[in-house]
């Protein structure tokens, strides 16, 4: 019989920069460390405990699911740990242990493993967990309420809540440098803008995340907020810089929207995806009922991802119909 080694043809993407899954995930975690450290300094032992517990439980859940589904244990690829870290970066340091436990359960099991594990998840697992958690326990994720027991030398109100409740007059007390340097309240690892940007730039330089998504995300936020500030009702909307440095905007642009499986792979789709996230974020913040729109906007664009990824270069060698 004719016996020939078969060529294995897999579908796109063909990108490979030589790194394996685990190096990817550990590099992303490494890049996130500068953003987490200010959180540790600000919130102390509580923050360290939340981050450690979150990473640990995420890995445990991953192993539990692997065992139940009789699959090889995949905690070695670092994805579960990364999910745990990113989730911990977004939640307040006062989050009770059981909320973290439920959060990592939702992220790892419902967000990722149910769809077939790493690479098959249509949504960013961390976003799924954040959305469900903040819908269920509003009090725990209301930063003003949650961080009541802390006392810092800067304004103790969560900037976006102040904007939503009292309009842009209330946020004049926040200086932009303070916001950028992390002198604001928020999640453990999502406030220190400069550290997130440094981490993000490192990831972009190493090719772990795509600059198109991050840049178009930030561009979408900036342009939409600018349009609102310029043409919207006077004294109702905050300026674009404020939106860039508050809430989850930066962590969203660099760590969350760029999640591999749920974001597009081609150039133009990436731009559309990023810009869509940015625009939606500002629309939710300015018009919608929620304080921050990053989580929901990324989920919405995840949903649109298969559709926008249809915009792709023409295949070579195809017969052109006349």
């Amino acid at each position: 019989m004719f016996n020939q080694k078969k060529f294995v043809v897999s579908h796109a993407p063909f990108w490979h920069d030589g790194s394996s899954l685990s190096t990817r995930h550990y590099h992303i975690m490494l890049a996130a460390i500068p953003a987490v450290i200010p959180g540790f300094i600000q919130y102390g032992g509580r923050a360290v405990a939340v981050v450690c517990f979150s990473i640990a439980t995420a890995m445990i859940w991953e192993m539990v699911v692997n065992k139940i589904a009789k699959l090889p244990v995949s905690i070695g690829d670092g994805n579960a740990a990364l999910i745990g870290l990113l989730l911990a970066m977004m939640i307040p340091a006062t989050t009770p242990w059981w909320t973290v436990l439920v959060g990592t359960l939702i992220a790892v099991v419902i967000g990722k493993q149910i769809f077939g594990g790493l690479g098959a998840n249509p949504f960013n697992p961390v976003m799924v967990a954040m959305a469900i958690l903040s819908l269920s326990w509003k009090g725990i994720f209301d930063f003003n309420e949650a961080l009541l027991s802390y006392d810092f030398d800067f304004t103790m109100a969560y900037p976006l809540s102040s904007l939503k409740a009292f309009g842009p007059d209330a946020i004049s007390s926040f200086s932009m440098t303070d916001l950028l340097m992390g002198r604001q309240t928020g999640g453990i690892g999502s406030t220190c803008g400069i550290a997130i940007i440094i981490g993000g730039l490192y990831l972009i330089a190493r090719g772990f995340i795509r600059w198109e998504i991050s840049v178009s995300f930030l561009g979408g936020v900036f342009v939409t907020a600018l349009l609102f500030a310029m043409f919207g009702e006077e004294g109702k909307y905050a300026g674009p810089i404020f939106h860039l440095f508050t809430g989850y905007t930066l962590i969203g642009a660099f760590y969350l929207a760029t999640e591999d499986a749920s974001s597009p792979v081609n150039f133009i789709p990436m731009l559309i995806y990023g810009a869509g996230c940015g625009i939606m974020t500002i629309l939710i913040r300015n018009i919608g009922a929620y304080v921050d729109g990053v989580v929901l906007s990324i989920l919405l664009m995840n949903l649109a991802n298969p559709l926008i990824d249809k915009i792709r270069p023409k295949a070579l060698g195809k017969v052109v119909e006349k």
Partner: peptide
């Protein structure tokens, strides 16, 4: 005594996820 209701489960998406997990 410290139990806080997981409100998500009585909302519509909670029904889908609950049903899915039970099917599973």
């Amino acid at each position: 005594p410290s139990f806080q209701p997981f409100t998500f489960m009585v909302q519509a998406p909670g029904a889908f996820i609950g049903l899915g997990l039970m099917l599973c």
